[in-house]
Simulated scan of single mutants.
Amino acid sequence: MNVFGIAGRSGMGKTTLLERLVPALNRQGLRVSLIKHSHKDIEVDRPGKDSHRLREAGCQEVLLLGRTRWALMHELRGDAEPPLAYLLSRIQDCDLVLVEGFKSGHFPKLEVWREAVGKPPLWREAQYAGQIVAVASDTALPADAPAPLRLDDLEGVARCVRAHATAISAAG
């Protein structure tokens, strides 16, 4: 499977771009999956529900199956976050895995940057050199921005994703 990242600091509009990009890639015939990393605690279950009660009782994993979807919840219980390669191994067969977050992962990324948010861009930081292949913004970008794109140019963003997505083994 091919992997491509959408990076940027909090509040830049990464998820908003993805909401528009995924349907555009689907229209091009791609089966797209997503891995989203959050620095916050996430809760996909609700207190009082059977699955929540059983997780709280100590289950390491709870797989919930309904008529229209299934979800696997895995409790870390103090263990380290798994590496991206492990998470990729959990994804079913698809054409493209978009990764939101994992800024320091070694795979190509498009940075979403909005000057109005008032946070510095990632592409200028040495640790992201060679990883950020393009920057999408809602304003004109400085000359040092790699492959500048407009956020509203979904076709250009989709072309960039397809051109730079890289096959990454789930084993490493």
Rank of each mutant, 00 (worst) to 15 (best):
P120E: 13
G5N: 12
L21V: 00
S137K: 02
E100V: 00
G172N: 08
D79L: 11
G5E: 09
K40E: 11
R90P: 08
D79R: 15
G13T: 00
L65S: 13
V117L: 10
F102M: 04
G29L: 04
V62L: 12
V117W: 01
S89T: 03
G130S: 10
A140Q: 12
C59D: 00
A126V: 09
K49L: 12
R150F: 00
D79Q: 14
P47Q: 12
F102L: 05
T16L: 03
R69F: 13
D45L: 10
S169P: 00
L96A: 10
A140S: 13
E100M: 02
L110S: 06
C94M: 02
P121N: 01
M12G: 04
D138C: 01
E43G: 08
I91W: 03
E43R: 10
M1W: 00
A170H: 10
L76T: 14
A171F: 00
L149A: 06
G58L: 06
S104W: 03
R77I: 07
T139W: 03
D152P: 03
D93H: 04
L98C: 08
S51G: 11
D45E: 09
A145C: 08
A170C: 10
H37L: 03
V97Q: 03
E19M: 03
D79V: 10
Q92F: 11
D50I: 02
A80R: 14
D138E: 13
E81D: 14
L34D: 06
D152A: 11
E75D: 15
E75L: 11
F4M: 12
E43V: 04
S10R: 13
Q92H: 13
K36N: 12
A129M: 02
A7I: 00
P47L: 07
S169Y: 01
L72M: 13
R67Y: 08
W123V: 04
D138H: 01
S169R: 07
D79A: 15
P23M: 06
L141Y: 06
V32Y: 05
